[in-house]
Structure formats: C-alpha cells, structure tokens
C-alpha cells in the first residue's frame, strides 16, 4: 500500500514537473486584450510547448535545456477565454493545461461584470518578479520627466511592447513613461488593489490624467452638465490610455462606444422624424461640421461636459442644427 502511494506521488510529481503555468492564474479577470503567458518547463519532460487561444491562434515554443521559463503574449477576446497550453515530448502529448480568463470591458454592458468565480490578479509583486529577474531587468529605469530617446531601452518594453501596437498611441505610453501613471497608488474605487502590485493605477484615474490635461480641469468645472464617466473622473472607461485603433484613444469608434452603454439609441427613432419619415442619421454618413470625419454621437453631443441639456454641443437648438444645416 505504501509503495503504491509513493509510486502515485512520484508519477504525479513527474507529471506536474513537465511544465507549470506561472501566469496567468486560472479564473483571472483581464482588462487588456492581451495575456502574458509564462510557463516553467522542464526540458527532461517536455521539448515543445503549444499555446493556443479561442481563436485557434497558436504559438509554439521550443524548450531548450538552458532556460526554465518561457513567455509569450496571447490575444484575448471579450468575455470568457480559455487558454490552452500543451506540452509535447517527442511528438507525444505529455501534459495539457487550460486556464480560464475573462476579458472585461467598461464600455460594453455585457462584459462589464465578470462571473462571480473570477478574480482579479496581480503580477508585479516580489515573488513573481524574482522568477522574471532571471532573464529580465525588473527595475524601473525611467528618468522622471524625461522620455526615452530609444524606447526599446525601457525595461518595461520587452514584455509589454504589444500594448502600444495600435495606430493611435498615447504619448506617455508610446514613450514608455509607464510609472507616470502606474504610480502604485490606489483610488476610491480600487482600494482592494492596495499594496498587491507595484504598478497599480488609482481608480478614478482623473488626478493623473488632469495633471497633464490641465486645461480640462479648468474648463470642465465651469460647465453645468457633466457626463457621468467624466464627472466621476474615470477617463479610462472610454479612453484606452495606451493605444487604440480609434482616434482620441477611444476604446471603440465613437458611435459604437456610446451605444455600448446607451443601447436604446441603436434602434428606434433618435432625433425628430423629418417629413421624409426617416429618422435623422446618427452614423454611417459624413459629418458636415467636422471635415473628413464620420457622423457620430459626438457630432451633436459633447462626451464630457456642456452647458446645454443632453450635453449638446451647442446651447441653442438652432445653433446645433446650423452646425451642419447651413443656409
């Protein structure tokens, strides 16, 4: 009986030692559409690793005896993702492991609240950094207030370079001034993050944003009506402070972004019905008031503040219409 038990234990151990996924954890909540996968692999038990996501994008990592840890970034889609890592030894599957992840989105009601069994995780703590520091310099090499002449010199760059992959990149992000926002502080909405990671960002993020965008602070306080995210100082709800395919670093193109919360505006008649019995368009046409841009919610509404009700861009109704209907 005892020998059987030890045999089982040995078998289990050998199985476990083939590879272990250091990051991400199972049932983890993600905020960026990227997951950094860190796998610790034993060359004796496994010679190649295949990481795949739900979109069947696969990455193959060759295990070599000199390295113990292997990192790779994998794309995620909104909602529940399963991330599969398969270890092969001489063509045979040695071990298979799956991690469930949930990518949330603040601008999509469907994905704003992850299921209860998912948890937030924190990577940059001393314990994890010790593992990374075998290959990476984990110190912050940023000079406060001076951007890198060569951005690849940033210690953050190597692991996080994909974060700036989209067309429109926020200046502090593309210049790798990470700690100017990731200052390790927490705000009223993320008190639970306190001291769990070195590079937490306060939520609401307002104080950080307005430390550069000072003009907004003065102008907005004078206005009568405020859009809720702007009022509560959670700029990052709509804006991706790293990079985005949309202008103004919006998480989605403006119209889609707005209708993510204001879903009732997608269908039905918005704005007066004209004599042609057609509703006023809200998208998919050119915006006459803004040269070269498409019509969207922001053509008529100010997404931040306004003196006019409904956050209209103009205080008088005629003034609003005459932005486009000039005659």
């Amino acid at each position: 009986m005892r020998t059987f038990a030890t045999l089982f234990l040995l078998l289990f151990l050998s199985e476990a030692e083939a590879f272990t996924i250091v990051n991400p954890y199972d049932k983890e909540i993600k905020e960026e559409s990227l997951a950094s996968v860190v796998v610790e692999a034993d060359f004796a038990a496994v010679d190649s690793l295949v990481i795949s996501n739900d979109a069947n994008e696969t990455v193959t990592l060759e295990v070599n005896p000199k390295r113990s840890h292997y990192c790779k970034s994998v794309n995620l889609h909104l909602g529940e993702n399963s991330l599969k890592v398969v270890g092969y030894k001489e063509g045979k599957v040695v071990k298979e492991e799956t991690k469930e992840l949930f990518l949330t989105s603040q601008v999509d009601k469907e994905y704003r609240y992850p299921p209860k069994d998912y948890n937030k995780s924190y990577f940059h703590n001393d314990e994890n950094e010790k593992i990374c520091s075998k290959c990476h310099d984990m110190s912050v090499n940023e000079v406060e207030g001076v951007a890198f002449e060569d951005i690849t010199k940033s210690n953050c760059y190597e692991c996080h370079k994909k974060i700036n992959r989209d067309e429109h990149s926020h200046a502090p992000s593309i210049n790798w001034l990470c700690t100017s926002c990731h200052n390790g502080n927490v705000g009223a909405f993320n008190q639970t993050d306190n001291a769990k990671t070195k590079y937490s960002v306060p939520d609401p993020i307002e104080e950080i944003c307005l430390s550069c965008h000072k003009k907004h602070k003065e102008e907005w306080s004078k206005k009568r009506f405020h859009h809720e995210p702007a009022e509560s100082g959670r700029c990052n709800r709509c804006h991706n402070s790293h990079s985005s395919p949309s202008e103004f670093y919006l998480r989605k193109p403006a119209w889609e972004l707005c209708t993510g919360c204001h879903k009732e505006k997608i269908e039905g008649v918005h704005i007066v019905k004209t004599f042609g019995r057609k509703a006023h368009p809200t998208h998919n046409v050119k915006d006459p008031s803004r040269e070269g841009k498409d019509l969207s919610c922001v053509s008529c509404h100010n997404p931040h503040v306004s003196n006019a009700p409904s956050l209209l861009q103009s205080e008088s109704a005629m003034g609003l219409c005459s932005r486009c209907h000039k005659k």
């Binding site: 207030g145 001076v146 951007a147 890198f148 002449e149 200046a171 502090p172 210049n175 001034l177 100017s180 430390s211 550069c212 000072k214």
Partner: peptide, 10 residues
Amino acid sequence: YTDFNGIKFP
C-alpha cells in the same frame, strides 16, 4: 527634447 506638461519628450 520638447517639454510638454513637465515631461521631456525627444
């Protein structure tokens, strides 16, 4: 470097 809001950007 250009100074923008107290940060020097090359």
